[in-house]
Design a protein around this nucleic acid. Sequence first.
DNA 1: CTCACTGCAAAGGTTTTGCAGTGGG
DNA 2: CCCACTGCAAAACCTTTGCAGTGAG
Lengths: 148, 148
Amino acid sequence: MKVSNKQISEKLQRKGLRITPQRIAVLEVIYNTKDHPSADKIIGLIRKTHPNIATGTIYKVLDTLVDQNLIRKVNTDKNLMRYDSIKEKHHHLFSLEADTIEDYYDKELDKMLAKYFRKRKIPNFKIKDIELQIYGKFKSKNSNKKKC
Amino acid sequence: MKVSNKQISEKLQRKGLRITPQRIAVLEVIYNTKDHPSADKIIGLIRKTHPNIATGTIYKVLDTLVDQNLIRKVNTDKNLMRYDSIKEKHHHLFSLEADTIEDYYDKELDKMLAKYFRKRKIPNFKIKDIELQIYGKFKSKNSNKKKC
DNA sequence: CTCACTGCAAAGGTTTTGCAGTGGG
DNA sequence: CCCACTGCAAAACCTTTGCAGTGAG
């Protein structure tokens, strides 16, 4: 399921953005990293193969990509942003123990919520989107963390 | 529905925390402010009546209160935290236009979600809590913002 | 060739920290 | 009284910005 550089270039092109190694590197990391990385983590990963991409540049790239709807910022309870590729509508599973965030897809749930809010209107508020933050514990291979 | 200083003092005492003017001031603001204030806003409001409470102190107080489960941090997509008093389970309505965050209570929704996830298990994940972030537009008196 | 983009370094804004001093219990 | 808590100021941290220089189209 790895996203290729070719696909990435096309995405950039479709948005009318210049195709630069910096942008490809950032998108490559975000598209191919499971856990929603922070800017810092993205920088770390990119530096391994492109040691001289500047911090400021990466932030600028991230900004541009968010503007162009190629990626999205994810809220966390630390004060630092995490980034997420934009895919199908999905929700987030937050680990209460580690800093893990995983995606959760559930069309049936979305349908149920849509149906629910079609009946139950919120006064003075027009819903555009609903995102669930599901907090809990990962039980398996994915995050067998040691206890603190 | 104003929360009195007496009630606040009791909450602090029950947690074994010392009752100080600084802590009372912070809790007073958080309990009696509708919109979930940022640290900065809390500081501003407190300074009106207590001009010499230090910034660092307020951060320390906020930290302590979060640790003791008297208040909670709320995620925003700016990089700054907002604070919320801990009340009944509730969700958040985020304005797509302004920086408004409002609480949304809906027991029926909670029941529906609980029922849903009793049937539909998420593999390798044990749910502890679900919080909805509902994005949309406020239509009324509360936030009749001008267009950008 | 041109201008959108990058690198660099400095600045900005929020939060944290260290430490001496104070006041709550 | 004593130690948890505060005030203050410096530092830490993440992110943004300005500007000269570069390379994508």
